[in-house]
Structures are given as structure tokens and as C-alpha cells.
Amino acid sequence: MTATARKAPIEAAAQPAPSGKVVPLGRAPVSRIDLGRIAANLARNVIPPLVVLAVLLAIWQVSCSGAGAPLPPPTQIWADSSDLIAQPFFNNGPQDIGLAWRVLISLERVSIGFGLAAVVGVAIGALIGQSIWAMRGLDPIFQILRTVPPLAWLPLSLAAFQDSNPSAIFVIFITSIWPVIINTAVGVRNIPEDYRNVARVLRLNQLEFFLRIMPSWNSSCASCCRRRRPTSSPACASAWDCRGWPSWRRKC
């Protein structure tokens, strides 16, 4: 018999059973949307940038208010262009449209350009990560091409496509593809040996390996970016960090 088992009857005998009364609990409090807390949370996140913005505008106003100031102050800009800002959706013909339309066109180009870069970049990156020969052949060329700045691609792109829309999409594509390729390749190369061994014992083919084992780099990364916590997975490379940062420097 264990020590606790031996002790239990003695204690039970020594103490009389406590007389209990069942007290019914009230209904559990219904969770209600706490407006006060939401407002406080909002204030915490909104007030600091507003304060900084106000300070910066004040500095700008003060420094550009003099007679010989090279740049107009914010008040002057508001007076001259308030109608453009206040009415972003006008459309007076092909070259005379509101700001919002222009932003939407840019967003469309970015999504097409980056979408293509993600698809092509992941495919090429997976190839480079898996095959030592593909890496030896492609890596030097990519390392040179990725240093070409976007502005240098623009004239080439315009000359090739003869049209602003496809050439803009191409420039977005060609500048965003390098981090995707590099991160994918690094991530695939860092897939732990154990996972590769699992795949080999199971005799997974290339496609199954890509679908089942390779998520090690993107799922761990996606989850760590989402939860904002460091991951222990070395196979984590932030190829999906699509905010345009030089993301291969920022291992999450």
C-alpha cells in the first residue's frame, strides 16, 4: 500500500465529515461587449500616432511659414488641394481621375505583381533549396540581378512592354521576387534532417514532399508572424513577409 493510501483512512476517521449545504450559484455572468475597454484600447493605439503627427505638422508649419521658405506650409497645401483630398472619387476622363481611383489601380498592380512573384518565387526557391545543381547554376545570377534597383528596371520594362500597366506590374514582380526566392530556398534547405528521413522512410515522392514536408518553413513562419512570437523552428524564413521589407534580414 502506498503512503497516501495508508494515511487516508486515518484522516477520515479523525475528522468528522463536514456538514455541507449546497448553495446554488447564480447564473454565470453573460460576457458583454465592454465598450469602455474597447475605447481605452483604441485610445492607446490611436492617440500616440495622432500626437506625433500633430507635432510634426506643427514643426513643418513653423519652419515653412517664413517669407523666403522654399516649401509651402501645411495650411497652404490644404488651401490649394483640399478639393482633391475631399473628393477622391471624381472621374473626368482617362487622365483626370480622383486619388482613390489612382490608389486602387496601384493596389491592383501590386497584388498582380506580388501574386505572380509569390507563385514563381516559391517554385524557383523550392527548386533551388532541393537541388544543389539548380542552386549552383541559378544562385550567382540571382545574386547579381537582385541588386538591380527598381528604377533601373523601369526603362527596360517600358521598352519591352511599350505600355505603362504591364511594365509597372513587371517592375513590382521583378523587385519582389528575389526575397521570395531566397527565403524559400533558405527555408527548404533548413528543413530538419529528421523530417527528410520521415519522408524517405515513407517513400514520399517529390510532389508529396512539397505538400507534406515543405510546409515546415511556411507554416511555422506564418504562425510565428501571426502570433508574434519567436519560433524555435530553424526552418522559418519569412518569404511571406509581403510588406516589402528586406525580409531575409528579419528572421522571425
Binding site: D194, Y195, S216
Partner: peptide, 12 residues
């Protein structure tokens, strides 16, 4: 079949 030392389960 191999049972690996560090389990090697796929975490996702």
C-alpha cells in the same frame, strides 16, 4: 519503420 530519438512528428 524507424522511431526517431526526437519523435520527428510534423508540428503542423
Amino acid at each position: 519503420a524507424v522511431v526517431f530519438q526526437n519523435h520527428s512528428l510534423l508540428p503542423w
